[in-house]
């Protein structure tokens, strides 16, 4: 039996050949090493994300998340729901808190779920993969399986918004959370200090609708990583990863910068440090190749 079991909520971007497919690949790899069994919530659906607000309203978004809860409760009883995506985690946790706090919303949500013969009892716990790693394992335990320390690579820990606010990781501050830096150090990398764009917003979904305004944010995030001597950026959020990596070429084109900064997930760092191959770490999923990590992964 696996050491720990969870009801896994990967979310739309962490599906095969979706924009964060490499997050899924590397998460699966690191879970194999740590003996974590992730069982997908059967037939899970989208969380609605924040941007769903305009058309979705409040109750439909709560009901969307509650469908996942109801499915997890009946198929994977007693297991915590674990999300890797910041938006999935946030939407699910917000739903959980609102339903816990209001009997009326709970009643209305269940009235909506009943249209599909479902019922949510109110028993699930919603957690982020980072919480699982830090709270259920701890930095020391996470350091144990390291066989290839990421020595000599400097990482700018870009936490972003929704893994940090409004819930964040217990015991961390909103303005300067340290867990990502600690995770970098746990796998033998160097966390750059004073990275002042650690919790800056990348524009989120508005990278699509307000491209110029968002690209100004992204420019600050990348530029500061260079200013602080980073070789790579590391993040826990799939939208941060995508926005900050993908739009560098656009910013270069429009503003004459020469950005070429790899943007990785913590799960990719851990997989390489645990001895996984470049493929197992999803490094083939980078638009901007993380060559220094590839070199470590290729070493015998």
């Amino acid at each position: 039996m696996a050491k720990k079991e969870y009801a896994f909520y990967p979310g739309c971007s962490s599906q095969l050949k979706a924009s964060a497919a490499n997050y899924l690949t590397s998460t699966r790899s690191l879970c194999r090493v740590l003996d974590i069994k992730l069982t997908e919530i059967p037939d899970w659906n989208c969380c609605g994300a924040s941007i769903g607000y305009a058309e979705g309203g409040e109750l439909p978004r709560l009901a969307l998340n509650a469908r996942n809860f109801a499915l997890a409760e009946s198929h994977l009883p007693g297991q915590d729901i674990v999300a890797t995506c910041a938006a999935c985690w946030l939407s699910a946790r917000e739903t959980k808190e609102r339903l816990d706090a209001s009997a009326e919303l709970m009643r209305e949500t269940n009235e909506a779920l009943a249209a599909a013969g479902l019922h949510y009892k109110g028993e699930v716990a919603v957690r982020h993969m980072v919480e699982v790693l830090i709270e259920d394992f701890g930095y020391e335990a996470l350091a144990q399986p390291v066989v290839k320390p990421l020595a000599g690579i400097k990482f700018a820990g870009y936490v972003g918004c929704q893994t940090n606010r409004p819930f964040g990781i217990a015991g961390e501050s909103f303005e300067n959370p340290m867990y990502l830096d600690k995770m970098v150090e746990t796998v033998g990398g160097e966390a750059v200090t004073g990275y002042d764009q650690k919790v800056t917003c990348c524009g989120g979904a508005l990278a699509f609708s307000e491209a110029e305004k968002s690209q100004k944010q992204i420019r600050d995030i990348v530029e500061s990583a260079y200013d602080h001597g980073a070789d790579m950026i590391v993040t826990p959020c799939p939208l941060c990863q995508a926005n900050v990596e993908i739009y560098q070429s656009e910013i270069n084109k429009k503003q004459g910068t020469k950005f070429h900064m790899p943007v990785l997930y913590y799960s990719q760092l851990m997989t390489v440090a645990y001895g996984g191959s470049a493929r197992e770490a999803g490094l083939d999923g980078q638009l901007i190749r993380a060559e220094k990590l590839e070199e470590i992964a290729a070493k015998g």
Binding site: L16, A18, D43, P60, L64, R67, A112
Partner: peptide, 30 residues
């Protein structure tokens, strides 16, 4: 190239088996 985009999504998308359930839930919630 990075396998983070699949042209087949146009014809055979990722989908929930319970899509009709979801429609019913959302309509009721609204």
């Amino acid at each position: 190239k990075a396998k983070r985009l699949n042209p087949l999504e146009l014809v055979k998308p990722h989908a929930c088996k319970g899509a009709k359930d979801i429609h019913a839930i959302l309509a009721k919630a609204k």
